[in-house]
Design a binder for these strands. Structure first.
Lengths: 188, 188
DNA sequence: CTTCTTTTTTATCATTTGTTAAAGGAATTT
DNA sequence: AAATTCCTTTAACAAATGATAAAAAAGAAG
């Protein structure tokens, strides 16, 4: 749990008392590689913190599996478009490695917001950071070539290449697996 | 001002008193077509509400003007990546039509957050909606062809095609002007 | 209205990325 | 260890998009 507190502190420091209130609405999950955390069609009612492991959010387009997002340890896993709109998500979450996860009940968290604005502020800031990341990713997809995007990923998260299959990395970058393979071949 | 209240109510209803507190930290701006609202390199310290007109956020990549975002009336104009990180933005804001704008001082708004959690919640929800839009745009850029993206834009915002130059629309869609012209030619 | 500037279209060619198929490797299961 | 399945690479060709240049059209300015 200390790990979660440390994560929180980077965004907004809350009292020990407030932290314990959050602790009370969490549960611990341990998933084995390839297990599903949330299924397509379910409305997101849980916010996950990935203590250890690796996860991805994906969806199907024309029967193809597309990785929408990759999440490394020490990050939140949330299907934002479902949580914020309270609508079923077309996306699923699965872990790509054995993972330890803290699940936070979203409804109970909203209730905590009412009694404790500091908690609301904490999560506001967490999601703001994620919002900024999303915006930066748009810039990358909007006007960088596939090769540039691949290089950017290696630069920022070199470990991802080793831990995630190239199939998933390709769709995450918005290209086909074959195209990624070609780019990698030229690099060497 | 009523227009702003109506806009707010869609996200979270606050008291008349709270609304008046917000009103006190706003100023009205009228800009002529092509005038700049914020310059590149400035840190975003103002949240704008576009009452009337049309605006865009843009930046320069290798000397090319790239439209990052188009904003229609009745929406907020914010350089989120700058506001949330309190860092200088590489992006600028300009209006594409004569526009009426309400400027909200971000620092004073943060102060209001402290004394009134309902105001913080209102803006949290406003930005959450914008976050969701950003995520949906990623999906579009990640795996839809240029032609699909163009059709989506026409579908969702047909008026944009008439009000914004194709040059700006092209870069917004992540393609060149020439490429967009070609796509349009095939359509007819 | 005429001139000047900017935007949009068209054409040609180069480059990138997609598609399909096949082969080689790696990992998993039996 | 062998068999099976899934992942990755390679190759050949197709399709989409980019780059450049020039013409046409539209808009702004005098």
């Amino acid at each position: 749990m200390n790990q979660l507190k440390t994560y929180f502190d980077d965004f907004h420091v809350i009292s020990q008392d407030s932290f314990e209130k959050i602790e009370k609405i969490t549960t611990q999950l341990n998933l084995k590689k390839k297990e599903e955390l949330q299924a397509i069609g379910k409305t997101c009612k849980t916010i996950y913190f990935l203590k250890k492991g690796l996860a991805r959010i994906y969806y199907l387009k024309d029967g193809n599996d597309i990785t929408d997002n990759l999440i490394l340890e020490n990050n939140m896993i949330v299907r934002v478009e479902s949580l914020f709109r309270n609508q079923p998500s077309r996306k699923a979450i699965e872990v790509l490695e054995d993972s330890e996860i803290i699940a936070i009940d979203a409804q109970k968290l909203m209730n905590l917001y009412d009694e404790n604005p500091q908690i609301e502020r904490l999560f506001r800031k967490i999601f703001e950071a994620s919002h900024v990341e999303t915006i930066n990713r748009i810039e990358s997809l909007q006007f960088h070539s596939a090769e540039e995007r691949y290089k950017e990923l290696i630069e920022k998260h070199p470990e991802v290449i080793k831990r995630v299959s190239l199939k998933h990395i390709a769709s995450y970058l918005g290209i086909t697996q074959v195209s990624l393979s070609r780019i990698r071949a030229i690099q060497n």
